[in-house]
Design a protein around this nucleic acid. Structure first.
Lengths: 234, 234
DNA sequence: TCACGCATTCTTCCATGCAAGCTGGAGTTT
DNA sequence: AAACTCCAGCTTGCATGGAAGAATGCGTGA
């Protein structure tokens, strides 16, 4: 039955389903290390824990597998993916590419829009600086995350933003693990400001370059920590 | 039950399942316009056509929805996503970002690896030039696709390659539609060679720039064609 | 003591049944 | 004639049962 429809129209506020609930709950459990990497469980067991039948759990796990968070071994259970330093290298390469592109895209927008976004970024950056000033590392990490999320969300590219969110989900555990270990990220405030400033000026090349070098520096701080922390543990 | 396992180990050659079959069949049908954009059907109907029950079809559709090829409207059927020029802009922005990053990554590898990849790229490029010389547009498109696929696959980043494949799946129909309409892509051979050359020399910045401008040029040829062809039809 | 074979058990995979929701049209009213 | 209500049919959401495969542990043999 062919009946054309507007397929690009916005979703009509999908009602919550058990699948969505299971998906969110599982993702949260993985992000917060309630299901640590390497954890292996059965759908039945998870379904029981969530108070639903196996079906919605199974479908949620398909989505999580598609995003690279878990892997289902045929007839042997589902296992939470571990992240090796090698994985982390891949993840950072993708982050660098997407975020630099996002910064560039924003810098190419008309001045009015650029200025608005730059102001938003500066505001988040100020909150980050404040958290850093009072040695609130968790607050810093939260504001830092908001800054980078804002950067890709204001790029005007929903696909790019979605891909970014997916890859950030994959790396969330590693970031949380190392946030207390690495040296105080005092340079980040400055670098963020540089990105916002390049955007304000409409200098796309500079925005790209600064976003890139900022992430590369962060990666170069984080990767050695992970390697010396034990190869494949997170 | 917590029983740690090697979660990063390679997949043990998963046996084909009905879900995989349905997934591939549906993706193929969408790519080849057997299910045109806007097509709306029921899972039951598709299941009957594929000779299986609704369950594997339902799960395959979840995967396709995750990749942005279809959208399931709750209790109203599943509809094949149309691609607007606006979508195409987003898609090309992502392609540019990923492919430029891939070229850059390859150019940063040791000389031996770089040379090998450059040779592979040149070989595909030669095939492309040959197809162009005999006015074989379909052959050209096929070789062109291989070139770009090779570029991201040799980046050494599986996540990047997977994201690229996903976004290329989304844009496949539009490319096939316009391949006969746009002017003869004679510049592409030259530009591909430039990319391979920059990789051979290990000039990461040049590789990035050339890969980027190549795709931007292609986009600037394609987008106007799509807009004048009718807004939301593909 | 060690190795091998077998059966039990646990797991996903897939089919199917039931329920709830959306759509479209018939029938009625104004 | 227009609009409104209600019902029938079709759709997915979810639960559950049966089947097949994989791993584990036990028993048996040397």
């Amino acid at each position: 039955m062919v009946r054309p429809r507007s397929a690009t129209a916005a979703a009509p506020a999908a009602r919550p389903s058990l699948v969505d609930g299971a998906y969110e709950a599982l993702k949260d459990a993985i992000r917060n290390n309630i299901f640590p990497p390497g954890y292996q469980g059965s759908e039945q067991e998870i379904a029981l824990q969530l108070g639903m039948s196996r079906t919605p759990v199974h479908e949620a796990i398909i989505r999580l597998q598609e995003e690279g968070l878990v892997r289902v071994l045929s007839r042997r259970g589902v296992v939470v993916c571990a992240i090796s330093p090698e994985d982390m290298r891949e993840i950072y390469e993708v982050i660098v590419a997407l975020e630099a592109a996002a910064a560039e895209l924003i810098a190419e927008k008309p001045e009015a829009q650029r200025g608005l976004v730059a102001a938003e970024l500066d505001a988040v950056n100020a909150a980050m600086a404040a958290a850093l000033a009072r040695d609130d590392l968790v607050g810093w990490a939260e504001a830092d995350g908001r800054f980078h999320q804002l950067l890709v969300q204001r790029s005007g590219n929903a696909r790019l933003a979605r891909m970014f969110a997916t890859i950030m989900d994959q790396s969330h555990r590693a970031r949380m693990l190392t946030v207390r270990l690495r040296p105080k990220p005092s340079l980040s405030v400055e670098e963020h400001h540089g990105i916002a400033e390049a955007i304000r000026c409409g200098d796309a090349a500079a925005a790209h370059h600064r976003a890139k070098t900022h992430r590369v520096r962060a990666r170069d701080q984080l990767l050695p920590l992970l390697t010396q922390l034990g190869m494949r543990h997170l």
